[in-house]
Amino acid sequence: MDSQSNAAIRTAEALVDTSAKPSGTEATPDACVSAELSPPEEKSQVQSRTPVMIWFRTSGPRYLVRIMALVAAVLLWELASDNGFSFYVNFENIPAPSVVGAALGAELAGQEFYLHILHSLERVAIAYVMAVVLGVVIGVAMGRSRWAEDIILPYIELLRPIPAVAWIPLAILMLPTEQSSIVFITFLGALFPVILNTVHGVEQTNGLLVRAARSLGASRTAILWHVVLPGAMPSIVAGLAIGMGVAWFSLLAGEIISGQYGIGYYTWNSYTLIQYPQIIIGMLTIGGLGTLCTLLVRKGCSPLLKWQARGGRS
């Protein structure tokens, strides 16, 4: 399990790094991974003048390529739907982007759609904050104490693979309101990646640094605060980003029972009325909001990772 999750976490870190530091620093161990992923030309252009110019020179064309890739996909989809493309994959009954776009226009003109989004944002926010606080605390405890790890790990390993949908019946019975059931299901989704990445980060703490701090007279709290946590931060941040993504897809499962509002409910309800354009709108909205929130988490956490750049150069 460890090597696998390590690899996953590494990749996630690399992603965090590239987005947090578009200019591409190379000295920290994590940046080595990111350098592997990013094309070589980034390195040579580090010395250019203003950051904005650098961005345009380096990332600008890449973003252009990304946008073009999306546009191409939409064009292909339009063609496939309009011509009833059917060769193993069948597009005959898939509404074309133009149809979906028209439906989206209608939704954006009304109020309902924003209510759905607001309700979902609220649920994700509550669930995510709870998952982050609890997840980091549990994760640090597990990383620092063998006892805590031995007691908690079996639960996590057992509960983690259970898909969010499976929790619905129990969530209804256990929790007092619909809202709390949905938040609970979303919370569970976000919790596990946060815990596991925190544990991983804490366990990776460089023993040399801990001994050095101790020999300088640092207390246990001081070591935790100034050595362990900063050291674990890249891994924790990766966990936070993954957790946000998982929170969004758990939300859809939870909102099946929402009954009234939420973008997951919107999507599910469209299915019960066989409204395919609305289903696609719901899917893309969840995807978009998930991406946006993950991006915000990464940006928000980048100050926590500043030590890496400074420390790495020494």
Binding site: I168, P176, E178
Partner: peptide
Amino acid sequence: IVNQSPAVGVANIQAGR
């Protein structure tokens, strides 16, 4: 009026929710 599938509605009635 709230939209709910039978299974969820029945569970909600049972739980008095």
